[in-house]
């Protein structure tokens, strides 16, 4: 609503009668009128038409063609979408949106950015129960991306990796299982439950290749191979790799999560008590062994 319209409306109100309970009304046409026919229309069809399946609501099943050999059975079977309901989904997060969130102070770049901080902005939601396994950082906005960040996403393309690294940042791709994601999408709610932080599971068979690949910056890949791949990518895209070792926030760029860790600074097995503001750590040998392994 433009400012002019508001000012005009408000100045108009000054010479109009006082707005009170007796002269307010809804916009005309915003209310639905009552549907049921009254009086002589009580015996009409109530919108269901005359005779047939429309009136009786007994529609044919989907695909049935009243005795014809149905269309969906006429031709051979090509399972393009086989198992689509079981595949992992990675909802997109664009570099443009990320840059926007950084510019509007929605995320803090002085700390490592992960799924928790993206969810905490309140702009993105993740539904792990619908097979969403994290964010896919996509290429839109790669031409304007400027920020130096240490980011951890669940999927990233080559161009995205090169964009982050060209700007002087670090990117990791990491896998989280559904239970871990449930803790991360609303961390406050999880801590309020008062249960210990679970340990993160290793990726399933079909994902292990991606997350051990240094060219994908997988979190299980060898760090030395990753630094080699950084150079390779810089040469491929033709930019000079910024030296992060000389950066003032080099310590922050080095921060990574343990493959079993879910939250930065918190280990699996710990219980965060928000009410008393204390962290309870397990003492039992058996528990320690379980969470360490």
């Amino acid at each position: 609503m433009s400012r002019n319209t508001v000012d005009k409306a408000l100045s108009m109100l000054r010479s109009l009668p006082r707005v009170a309970l007796n002269n307010i009304r809804d916009n005309p046409g915003s209310k639905m009128t009552q549907k049921r026919g009254r009086a002589q229309h009580g015996g009409d069809k109530h919108g269901a038409g005359n005779k047939g399946s429309g009136q009786r609501q007994n529609y044919m099943r989907l695909g049935y063609e009243t005795g014809n050999w149905p269309f969906y059975l006429r031709f051979g079977y090509e399972p393009y979408y086989k198992g689509h309901h079981l595949r992992r989904q990675y909802p997109p997060l664009t570099l443009f949106q990320l840059q926007m969130m950084i510019d509007t102070n929605r995320v803090d770049i002085s700390k490592p950015i992960d799924l928790v901080s993206i969810c905490n902005t309140g702009l993105f939601r993740l539904f792990p129960d619908q097979h969403q396994f994290g964010f896919n950082l996509t290429e839109e906005g790669a031409d304007i991306f400027q920020a130096k960040i240490n980011i951890e996403v669940q999927w990233a393309s080559e161009l995205v990796i090169s964009t982050i690294e060209r700007a002087g940042g670090v990117i990791t791709t990491a896998y989280y299982d559904q239970h871990s994601l449930q803790c991360m999408i609303n961390s406050k709610k999880f801590f309020e439950r008062g249960v210990p932080i679970p340990k993160r599971m290793i990726p399933p068979k079909d994902a292990i290749e991606y997350y051990t690949d240094p060219s994908k910056r997988g979190y299980l890949a060898d760090p030395e191979k990753i630094s080699h791949e950084r150079l390779v990518l810089a040469q491929k895209y033709g930019y000079e790799l910024p030296v992060i070792e000389k950066d003032s926030s080099y310590e922050m760029f080095l921060e990574r999560k343990d493959p079993r860790q879910i939250f930065y600074g918190l280990h699996p097995g710990w219980v965060v008590n928000l009410k008393d503001k204390v962290i309870l750590k397990p003492q039992d040998e058996e528990l320690l062994q379980y969470y360490n392994s």
């Binding site: 609503m1 319209t5 508001v6 000012d7 409306a9 408000l10 109100l13 707005v19 307010i24 009304r25």
Partner: peptide
């Protein structure tokens, strides 16, 4: 000084 929405008031 927002838009005086009479319908929303209603």
């Amino acid at each position: 000084a927002t838009n005086p929405r009479i319908d929303i008031i209603h």
